[in-house]
C-alpha cells in the first residue's frame, strides 16, 4: 500500500518536472501550428467557414512546382557542397597543424554571426564589382566581363553552403578525430596506399557522421529564410513565397498559412524518408 503511494508520488513529481517543457511545446509550437492550420482552411480574412481553396489555387499554379523544386534543389545542393567541403577540411584539421584553434573557430564563425550580415558580405564579395569578379577578370583567361553570381541559383547554393556547412564539418571532424589510428595503420600495413585508405577505410567509417550532419544542414537550408529573402532576387523558395503573401497590405494570411502547411508537410515527409535511408546499414 505504502509502495503504491510512493510510486504515484514519483509519477506525479516526474510529470511536474516535465510540465514546463511540455507546456512550452504546446503553447509555443503546437497551438501556433494549429492556428496556422485553421487559418489555412478559412476563407481569407474571415473567422468562420471551411475551404480548401488556398491549397488548390497554390498547387494549381504552374509556379508552385517551380517553387517547391527550387527549395529542394537549393537545400540538396547546399548539402552536397557542404559534404565536399567538409571532408578535406576535416582531414586537414585532424592533423592539428599550426593555428589549429584559430581554424576551428573559423569553422563555426558563419553559424555565430547573424546570417544576414554574412549574406551582406557575400553579396558584396561576389557582386559585379566584388573581389571575386575582379580576380576572375584579372587572372583567368577568357573572362572579360563580370560573371553574375549574386541572384542566381548556383550563387544561392554557394551562399547556403557558406552559412550551413558547419553542421556537417563539425560532425565530420568529430568522427575523424574519434577514429582509431590503428585501423588506418592496419590498412597501411596491408599495403593500401593513401588514397585507398581514404576511399575504403576512412570514408566508410565517417559516413554515418556525415549523414547525421547533413540532416541538420538540410533542415536549416530547407527552412532558410533570411538568405533567399535578401540574396534570392527572382528565385523565391517556399519560405520567401510565404512571407511575400503577408508582406504587403492586404496581408493574405490564409494563403500564407496554406503554403506554410505545405512546406512543413514536405519537410517532415522528406526527413522521414531520409531517416529511413539512414537507418539502413550502408554497405
Amino acid at each position: 500500500m505504502l509502495k503504491r503511494g510512493s510510486k504515484a508520488r514519483f509519477i506525479l513529481i516526474t510529470l511536474l518536472l516535465l510540465s514546463p517543457g511540455l507546456l512550452t511545446f504546446f503553447l509555443l509550437f503546437f497551438y501556433p501550428m494549429m492556428v496556422t492550420l485553421t487559418r489555412s482552411l478559412r476563407p481569407e480574412g474571415e473567422q468562420i467557414g471551411w475551404t480548401l481553396e488556398h491549397y488548390v489555387t497554390f498547387l494549381a499554379e504552374p509556379r508552385a512546382r517551380e517553387v517547391i523544386l527550387l527549395t529542394f534543389v537549393l537545400s540538396i545542393g547546399a548539402v552536397l557542397c557542404s559534404v565536399l567541403l567538409s571532408i578535406p577540411l576535416g582531414l586537414a584539421l585532424r592533423q592539428k597543424l599550426r593555428a589549429h584553434r584559430f581554424y576551428r573557430l573559423t569553422m563555426i564563425t558563419p553559424r555565430v554571426v547573424p546570417g544576414l550580415i554574412g549574406a551582406l558580405g557575400l553579396l558584396l564579395l561576389f557582386g559585379s564589382r566584388g573581389w571575386v569578379n575582379l580576380f576572375l577578370i584579372r587572372f583567368v583567361p577568357f573572362v572579360n566581363e563580370p560573371i553574375s553570381i549574386n541572384y542566381t541559383i548556383p550563387g544561392l547554393i554557394l551562399f547556403y553552403t557558406w552559412l550551413y556547412f558547419p553542421f556537417i564539418a563539425l560532425t565530420t571532424l568529430a568522427a575523424l578525430e574519434g577514429l582509431d589510428p590503428a585501423i588506418e595503420e592496419a590498412a597501411d600495413v596491408a599495403g593500401a596506399n593513401r588514397w585507398q585508405v581514404l576511399r575504403h577505410v576512412v570514408i566508410p567509417l565517417i559516413t554515418p557522421a556525415i549523414l547525421a550532419g547533413s540532416v541538420l544542414t538540410f533542415m536549416a537550408a530547407f527552412g532558410a529564410f533570411s538568405i533567399p529573402l535578401i540574396a534570392g532576387g527572382n528565385h523565391r523558395p517556399l519560405s520567401v513565397e510565404i512571407y511575400r503573401q503577408i508582406d504587403f497590405t492586404p496581408a493574405r494570411w490564409s494563403a500564407a498559412s496554406a503554403r506554410a502547411m505545405i512546406m512543413a508537410v514536405l519537410q517532415v515527409i522528406f526527413l522521414t524518408i531520409y531517416m529511413r535511408v539512414l537507418r539502413r546499414p550502408i554497405t
Binding site: L18, G21, L22, F25, L28, F29, Y31, P32, M33, M34, V35, T36, R39, M219, F222, G223, F225, L238, S239, I242, Y243, I246, W253, A256, S257, A260, M261, M263, A264, Q267, V268, L271
Partner: peptide, 24 residues
C-alpha cells in the same frame, strides 16, 4: 519519443509556426 516530440520545433521550418505565433 518524448524527446523527439520536444525537438519537433527544430524540425519544422520556423516560418510555418511563426505565422501562427504572430496571429496569436
Amino acid at each position: 519519443l518524448l524527446m523527439s516530440i520536444l525537438l519537433l520545433p527544430r524540425m519544422i521550418p520556423p516560418i510555418a509556426f511563426a505565422l501562427g505565433v504572430a496571429q496569436i
